[in-house]
Design a protein around this nucleic acid. Structure first.
Lengths: 201, 201
DNA sequence: GTCTATATTGCGATAGAC
DNA sequence: GTCTATCGCAATATAGAC
């Protein structure tokens, strides 16, 4: 049992950090939940902060891999938006704790977050913005769209379901198995809303 | 200077808690930023936790007052959705730190959060859900809408701009003075997306 | 109501035996 | 690689003078 200690620590730390936040959990609690000695955190990760960084990198790596799907292919603007939607669904389903780390980092960023901001979020943003620009140029989307705002609207409508899940689990009665159904309807609402000829006024 | 100490402490605490989170700030720092002695936190608020609760109650009170606008009047379904949008804008503009406390509480709830969940969020959710149901019944909205999901889509598209602001301030070049413009476009996208006859086939 | 000084606890990190 | 024991520090809270 040498390398297994790292794995057990990361697994316990992912759960505990997601639940209580970085400062809300002590190294003693982390070690206890992992079933190892607390001194091993310093030995394997150079301290609590190193363990947290390892957890973040582990979480964000899955996101980066999935993201290549939308970035490295040639699709129509609408297809790229659809691809973004299913990618969002995949990310949240394969890593349900990710959203907590993402928003914890968003509001209280650690040094490690800049990597994600620059390598992932900015890239996604620009890719989507280009898709909107292209869709407008081709006459598929409303010509009066502000592309930056459209990107935020798309990201908001796709991600908020997972952000608000702690609430909706209590508010909505039978809300499970609904992530995919949500994404599908949200996608149709959004696409119908930006297509040419649906302008209000 | 008796009651002024409470005010100064709440003001400093609102700023510091929003910036660093509950555990990220000490009572010494709180007192120093407020320009008072640290022992006065225990005297006036029975400790750090009491001060945090006072900050939360102060933040959430404004939200509750503004929320009455959508709840206590008889508007058409589309008018209620528009009223919700401008209310969201008002809330975030009059209290820019609120979103941080809201999501901090969403992921790491303190006892005080249940009050908000029950008195505000659930009420808003149900009011909007009723508006969608009514709009569908009157033939104004697409008949295949899932109302719970539509509420989440609306909340997501309206709030995400303010959630993602720490990011977009770095990502988008000249993004200021854009909150109202965002809300207006997001509203048109959403309404165009749920109106009858815009269904994707 | 406000201050100084201090009690007490819990934290992260590490030295050193095995 | 793992464990025990402990160090040093910073945290909150409070007692008591003013």
């Amino acid at each position: 049992m040498e390398k297994d200690t790292r794995t057990k620590l990361i697994a316990a730390a992912t759960r505990l950090f997601a639940e209580k936040g970085y400062e809300g959990v002590s190294i003693r609690e982390l070690a206890q939940q992992a079933g190892v000695n607390s001194a091993l955190i310093s030995y394997h990760f150079s301290g609590k902060e190193g363990l947290y960084t390892a957890v973040l990198e582990n979480q964000f790596t899955m996101m980066l891999e999935l993201a290549d799907r939308i970035l490295h292919n040639s699709l129509t603007p609408e297809q790229k938006i659809r691809e973004y939607a299913v990618t969002v669904l995949s990310i949240h389903q394969s890593s349900p704790t990710l959203i907590r780390f993402l928003y914890s980092e968003l509001f209280h960023p650690s040094p490690c977050f800049e990597v994600i901001t620059q390598r992932f979020l900015a890239k996604i943003f620009q890719t989507l913005a280009l898709s909107f620009t292209e869709g407008i140029a081709k006459g598929q989307f409303r010509p009066d769209l502000n592309v930056e705002n459209a990107v935020i609207s798309l990201a908001g409508i796709m991600n908020f379901y997972f952000i608000a899940r702690p609430l909706t689990q209590n508010l909505v009665a039978g809300s499970e198995a609904g992530a995919q159904a949500y994404i599908e309807q949200a996608l149709e609402i959004f696409l119908a809303g930006i297509r040419r000829g649906n302008k209000d006024g």
